[in-house]
Computed example of a mutant assay.
Amino acid sequence: MPSPRDATIIPYLKAIWILQHEERVRVGVTALTEKLAKAPATVSQTVRSLADARLIRHKPYGPIELTLKGEQLALAVVRHNRIARAFLYQVLDYPWPEVAREAEGLLPVLHDDLANRLHAVAGSPQTDPYGNPIPGTGESTVRQGRPLSEQRSGVELEILRVSDTDPALLDRFDALGLTPGRRVRVEQTDHATGVISLICNNTAHTIGVQAAYRIFTARPDGKERQYPGQASASTQTASVAARPSASLSVRPSTRTSIASE
């Protein structure tokens, strides 16, 4: 039976929580297989182990739901993971595209006290470097963004969050400056070729529609609908923390509350 700190199950708990609370999709073996990029047989076996450990509820062909114990562990995993990312980026100056991969290796050794200390040293940010909200950072205003591929042309937008699951795509976004806090404007969408022309940092770029779907944006004037708090983390995007520069907004800094595991 797996332990709460088993490195094998940590990615599963994190993925289930994100799918359920932030991406708002029905969590099943297929969704987990796609999210984790693992073989269906491997996912099915681990799901059975999680059910045996009473961390999830799952019946064949039915949805996967976290139990109370599983919910608490998953929430701690998500919080610790995003704090580790913020620490690596803010304090240790890890390259932005590499932060997601490096932070995974820290999860098995992180606990609440250490995570809280790392969070404080990093400046108590409300989001990780990819714009994902850090649970337990207190009340804040969370904005619901839309994929860049769905935005109208000619409208100035702010990048709120980017998908952090594809290392190659993170490298591409970093090279083009398509990171949280940047301003971007869609110039034209060519549906025939699946290519979007855009302006970012006063420079013209082209990216594929599928890549643009992984960049979540909103109007910088905040006229989109506002959603209170991240207590339930029921949003796709958040107010963004980004490394300060002439064209980036400065990371917010707020005092964190301690999340129990």
Rank of each mutant, 00 (worst) to 15 (best):
Y89K: 12
G145N: 13
L106F: 10
N81Y: 02
P147M: 02
G136K: 02
V121E: 14
D128G: 08
L160K: 00
A103D: 04
E139I: 15
G131H: 07
T141H: 05
S140E: 15
E150M: 13
A122H: 03
P95Q: 03
L88M: 08
E71P: 05
A74G: 01
E156G: 06
Y94M: 06
E158F: 03
Y89L: 03
L73Q: 08
G136Q: 06
P133T: 01
L148E: 08
T165C: 05
T141Y: 05
P125K: 00
S140V: 09
S153R: 12
I134K: 00
N132L: 14
T141E: 12
L110R: 03
Q126K: 03
G70L: 06
P129F: 03
P133M: 04
G136C: 15
A86D: 08
D164C: 00
G105E: 09
L176A: 07
R183M: 04
L118E: 01
E158C: 05
D128I: 13
K69R: 13
G70R: 11
V77Q: 01
G177R: 07
P147E: 09
W96A: 12
I83H: 02
E158D: 09
A103M: 09
H111G: 00
A74Q: 00
A84D: 00
P108R: 04
E158G: 12
I159M: 14
E156T: 13
A76M: 01
V186P: 05
R101T: 13
L106G: 11
L92G: 02
N81Q: 13
D164P: 05
D113N: 14
R79H: 05
I83T: 02
L118M: 15
